[in-house]
């Protein structure tokens, strides 16, 4: 192994290097297939699409790292934005001021956090399987949302809402800025904070973590609460993009977020996984989708390719592990 290789490995881990190679492959293949792939317009559209899925994936990441799952991410996002939409409507709809928006956003974050808090508390104190708890929460929130909105859209927001969704600062789309800030926050949370450290430990062995003096119940509750808050951020960004709220917006993203985490090398049983590699996985997914789009395919084909891509990556990881084992046995 060369010194550069081992330096990169130590800094980034094999996962990031592998995904980086995939990213390169995707870029090369599509730029050969379409001359519109390597253009500012294409990257612009990727930058606009990335944040919605990306924010929801960040919300999914924490629970998976802790050895669980949060199947309620999309509906938590919906319910949170409903709160914001009502605050705006109560303050005059299109005439509502920015103050109302801020207040509504804070309420939305609180609602998202509350939903996560309930899930986390149930997971922590009843020790029920997180898949079940979040599944039940998802069914509940979907029902609640449909009941409150009667299945309809809520729209009629002040102009600045759409401006947030479509505007840009120094050429960088506003949603992308929100996303990158959240990525940074998660990176710090998982890499440097106490709770992040506990998340990994709880994901590997919750009892041993408790024996080491960690209040694991509190940690789990906080993990899901933060996941819920991140859902609300995703919801607000989605609302600004669509300029409307409907229960079911982003529903199709649910299993894609899980897919993105697995693609990013997150251990399905918890305990291992990095924000950077998940970010890379998200970029690959969006580039795949935009590349196929340029070649005339629709979103459905992209969905299928995402699924097949995950399978291919998992098979390659398996083969890689086998190869390393064989090489070790050979020498």
């Amino acid at each position: 192994m060369g010194p550069l290789q081992s330096f990169l490995k130590a800094r980034l881990g094999t996962e990031v290097i592998g995904l980086g190679l995939f990213l390169l492959l995707v870029v090369v293949v599509f730029s050969l297939l379409s001359d519109r792939f390597l253009t500012a317009a294409n990257f612009g559209s990727v930058a606009v699409q990335l944040p919605e899925l990306g924010l929801l994936t960040l919300a999914m990441l924490l629970p998976i790292l802790s050895g669980g799952l949060n199947l309620a991410v999309t509906y938590t996002a919906n319910i949170s934005t409903l709160t914001l939409a009502w605050v705006l409507q109560a303050n005059g709809g299109p005439e509502a001021g920015f103050g109302a928006f801020l207040f509504g956003s804070v309420l939305a974050l609180a609602v998202g956090g509350a939903s996560g808090f309930v899930m986390g508390a149930v997971v922590a104190y009843s020790r029920a399987h997180p898949i079940l708890v979040s599944l039940a929460m998802m069914i509940f929130l979907r029902g609640l949302g449909e009941y409150l909105t009667r299945g309809g859209d809520i729209s009629g927001f002040p102009d600045f809402v759409a401006a947030i969704g479509h505007g840009s600062i120094l050429g960088v789309p506003a949603p992308l800025i929100v996303f990158l800030v959240c990525v940074l926050l998660w990176q710090i949370l998982l890499g440097r904070s106490r709770l992040g450290f506990f998340t990994y430990m709880v994901g590997s062995n919750i009892e041993a973590t408790r024996y080491s003096g960690v209040n694991t119940k509190r940690a789990l509750t906080l993990i899901y609460t933060l996941s819920g808050i991140m859902c609300a951020v995703a919801g607000i960004v989605m609302m600004a993009r669509f300029n409307s709220v409907r229960v079911g917006h982003g529903e199709a993203y649910l299993l894609i977020t899980v897919l993105a985490c697995f693609l990013g090398g997150v251990d399905p049983f918890g305990g291992f996984g990095r924000v950077t590699s998940v970010l890379l996985a998200l970029v690959i997914l969006q580039l795949l989708s935009s590349g196929l789009n340029l070649l005339g395919a629709n979103q459905h084909l992209s969905t299928a390719v995402w699924g097949l891509f995950l399978i291919a990556v998992m098979v390659l990881r398996f083969a890689w592990k086998r190869w390393i084992e064989m090489r070790r046995n050979g020498t």
Partner: peptide, 26 residues
């Protein structure tokens, strides 16, 4: 006693994490 799959360093740091904080971060 130990979190087997995690690193030696992380296992050592777990019970004394509070003392490794500076400005709230590890």
């Amino acid at each position: 006693g130990l979190i087997q799959p995690q690193s030696i360093a992380d296992n050592l740091a777990l019970p004394v994490l509070d003392r490794l904080l500076s400005l709230g971060l590890i």
